[in-house]
Amino acid sequence: MRKLLIPAAVAALVMPFGVAVASADTGHHPSPKQDQRNTFTYALLLPVANNRVQGIGTATVVLHGHDAKITIHVRGLLDHAPHAMHIHVKGSGECPTTDDSRLHNGHLATSTTDGLRAYGAIGTSLTTTGDTSPNSALAIDRFPSAGTYTYSRTIQITDDVARQVRHDNAVVVVHGIDYNKNGKYDTVLGASELNPMLPQEATAPALCGPLH
């Protein structure tokens, strides 16, 4: 599957972070002043309002400085389809509600940008390999492609994202919905506002949970 990077239309999601976040593979090293406390955070991942999702999941992030061991368990999403996952930060530290939904191609649903007020911009892309910066937000060939899966990876995150996790202002979001229950991503909700080459179903938030 072709790697798709973020177009200009999604700049609002990633601009607060500027440069790419180094992954565990890049040799990035913590700064001397960084917080070295061990911090355990947990999120119950529940269906996003009005997106007709019946799945559920959990996420844990264990932090020591920049090192983050991330474990995510998901079940009940669309099978044989990529599910992008991110840590979002600097919103209100919450998940979208029905008040955040709006009409997409005539259907009431919640898109990724509809939820920005609640969960904020992308801080880290939870890819399976390689780069974990916001630049990999739509690298759909490097996310899990199953309806039920376990993700486990230790990566390095920025000071900024680590700070938000430690201060309860970080939210895990899993994307990809089957709004009309036909077993595939299609254009029932129109094209994604993040990348018009993708259907809205492919990028809409499916599961969401604040880290505490």
Rank of each mutant, 00 (worst) to 15 (best):
A204G: 02
G93Y: 01
I87H: 03
T26I: 02
T203N: 06
D25M: 09
G183R: 07
A191Q: 14
Y149V: 04
A162K: 01
A59S: 06
H83V: 00
A81S: 09
N51M: 05
H212I: 10
Y185I: 00
D67H: 14
A137I: 05
F17Y: 15
K181M: 08
Y185V: 00
A202L: 04
V165A: 11
A49S: 04
P16D: 06
T187P: 07
L198P: 04
A81D: 03
A202V: 09
I72S: 05
I6H: 07
N38C: 13
T150Q: 07
S92P: 12
A84V: 00
A139Q: 11
T98H: 11
T127D: 09
V21G: 13
L13M: 11
T127K: 10
I70Y: 09
Q164P: 09
T97C: 11
V89K: 05
H66Q: 15
D99W: 03
H107V: 03
H64M: 08
Q200F: 02
N195E: 07
S92G: 05
G93H: 01
V171F: 07
A121K: 12
L126W: 04
T58Y: 06
I72H: 03
D67C: 15
L44C: 12
H86C: 02
I122K: 05
G27N: 09
G209S: 06
A81P: 05
L198I: 03
G190Q: 01
Q36I: 12
D114L: 10
Y151W: 13
A59Y: 01
A191G: 15
L63V: 00
V10L: 15
N195I: 02
T26Y: 07
P196T: 10
G18K: 06
A137R: 11
H64S: 15
V10C: 12
N195T: 11
I140M: 14
Y42S: 08
R2Y: 11
A206K: 07
N105K: 09
A24R: 10
L116I: 15
H175V: 05
L78T: 01
G18F: 02
H86R: 00
G76P: 08
F143N: 03
L211C: 02
A49R: 02
H175I: 10
A118C: 01
Y42D: 12
T127M: 14
L126Q: 12
V19A: 15
H212M: 07
A68C: 09
S92R: 13
A68L: 07
F40L: 11
N195G: 14
T71I: 14
G176D: 04
T132P: 12
A162W: 01
